[in-house]
Amino acid sequence: MARADGQRADRGEQAPPFVGLTGGLGAGKTTALALLRELGAATLSSDEVVHELLEQPEVVAEIAERFGERVLADGRVDRGRLAETVFADPEARRALEQILWPRVGAEVAAWRARAAAQQPPPRALVVEVPLLFEAGMEGAFDATIAVVADDSVRSERLVGRDQRALAERDRRQLPQHEKAARATFTVRNDGTIEQLRAQLSAVLATIAPCKARR
C-alpha cells in the first residue's frame, strides 16, 4: 500500500506521481483524462465524485436543510436548480463548498491509496479538477497539466449547452493563459485526437521524475 512519504511500502519503490489536470470550459479536459487512462494512468474526475456525492441520502438531506426543498426534484438534488441557487450568491456557493469539499477530499484520498497500491502500478495518478488553481489546490499535487484550446474551438464545443450557466462558471475561472502559466505542463487541444495523445504521452514520459511545485 502507499505510504504518506510517497514510497511503496512493499518494495520500496516510488509511488506513482500525483497529478492535477485542469483547463478552461470547452478545452477538452474530459477527453484528455480519457486519453491519459488509455496511456496507463489511473484517473479520477472530481466532477464525477461530486455527482456521486449528490446521490447520497445524507448529502441530499444536508443540502435540502441549507438551501430548501426548492433544489430537490422527486427527493433528489436537481443540479440545475442547485446551480442557479449558488452561482449568483457567493455566500451560498461557499456553504455548498463546505458541504462537498471535505467529502470530495476524502474520496480522492481513498481513491489515491487504492490506485497507488495496484500491481503493476499506474504510470501516474491523475485527478481532473476544473478549479484547481482557483481553489489553490496545486500544492497538493506533484505536477499539474493545463489543457488549452483556441477560443473559437472552445466556443464550438460548447454550442447547445446552457449558456447562462456556462458564463457564470467561466467568470469563476482564471483565463487560459494564467492556467497555462501556472501549470507544470500545458497541452493544446485544438488539433486532432492523435496530436493530443502524443502530447500527453510525452508528458507521462517526463512526469515521473518531476518534482512537486510547492
Rank of each mutant, 00 (worst) to 15 (best):
E134N: 12
G136H: 11
G136D: 10
M137V: 03
M137R: 15
E138R: 13
G139H: 09
G139M: 06
A140R: 15
F141A: 03
D142N: 11
A143M: 06
T144D: 01
T144H: 00
A146D: 08
A146H: 08
V147G: 00
V148G: 12
V148M: 08
V148H: 13
V148A: 15
A149M: 03
D150W: 03
D150C: 02
D151Q: 15
D151H: 11
V153Q: 05
V153W: 00
R154F: 00
R154K: 13
R154N: 04
R154V: 01
S155R: 15
E156Y: 01
R157D: 04
R157T: 04
L158G: 01
L158T: 02
V159M: 07
G160T: 07
G160M: 05
R161I: 00
D162G: 10
Q163I: 00
Q163V: 06
Q163F: 03
R164D: 13
L166E: 12
L166Y: 02
A167T: 12
A167C: 09
E168M: 14
E168N: 02
E168V: 13
R169N: 01
R169H: 03
R169P: 03
R169W: 02
D170P: 00
R171W: 05
R171E: 09
R171S: 12
R171N: 11
R172S: 13
Q173F: 04
Q173H: 08
Q173W: 07
L174W: 15
L174D: 07
P175K: 08
P175F: 10
P175D: 08
Q176N: 11
E178H: 12
K179D: 01
A180F: 06
A181W: 09
R182V: 04
R182H: 09
R182M: 05
A183K: 06
T184D: 12
T184H: 12
F185S: 08
T186G: 04
V187K: 02
R188V: 11
R188Q: 15
D190Q: 02
G191D: 07
G191A: 12
T192C: 00
T192H: 01
I193D: 03
I193A: 00
Q195F: 07
Q195L: 06
L196R: 01
R197N: 07
R197H: 01
R197F: 00
Q199N: 10
Q199K: 02
L200G: 11
L200Y: 08
S201D: 11
S201Q: 15
S201M: 06
A202H: 09
V203G: 02
L204C: 11
L204W: 03
A205F: 04
A205H: 06
I207Y: 03
